[in-house]
Design a protein around this nucleic acid. Structure first.
Length: 115
DNA sequence: CGATTGACGTACG
DNA sequence: TCGTACGCCAATC
């Protein structure tokens, strides 16, 4: 219905990219936004994650952190420590809610996907 | 329908 | 280096 409806393709794109994040890697909202061509709309990426858990294929939102490598969205998970647990489970070290060697685990879609 | 908020990032002082 | 302001777009009140 509502053929004039404007589907949030941007949100869907975000989910797709997040699913492409390899295990043991992390990325930032801005990186995804830039990859989608919306570097200025980095907030939309975070907002998209808001409905990530609502998506059918579960979106590994725990692999998405802010530019500082800080687990800013951990409070949005089922449990605030769940995000850290998942990351640590993948071999990522976290200190004070911040990813250690974040730059080392950083996964840039623009670079990895090399479009 | 208007105003506010938000899982960010960059710019400016 | 740190703090504040702005932008961007959608969802919510």
């Amino acid at each position: 219905m509502t053929p004039t409806k404007t589907p949030p393709d941007f949100f869907d794109m975000v989910y797709q990219v997040v699913r492409l994040i390899p295990k043991g890697r992390v990325t930032s909202y801005g990186a995804i936004a830039k990859y989608l061509g919306a570097a200025s709309s980095s907030r939309l990426v975070g907002y998209a994650m808001n409905g990530a858990h609502s998506q059918k294929p579960k979106v590994p939102a725990h692999r998405v952190v802010n530019r500082q490598g800080l687990l800013t969205g951990k409070h949005h998970f089922a449990s605030p420590n769940l995000m850290q647990q998942l990351l640590e489970k993948e071999g990522i070290k976290i200190k004070n809610d911040q990813i250690v060697h974040f730059e080392k685990y950083f996964w840039d879609p623009q670079k990895e996907l090399a479009l």
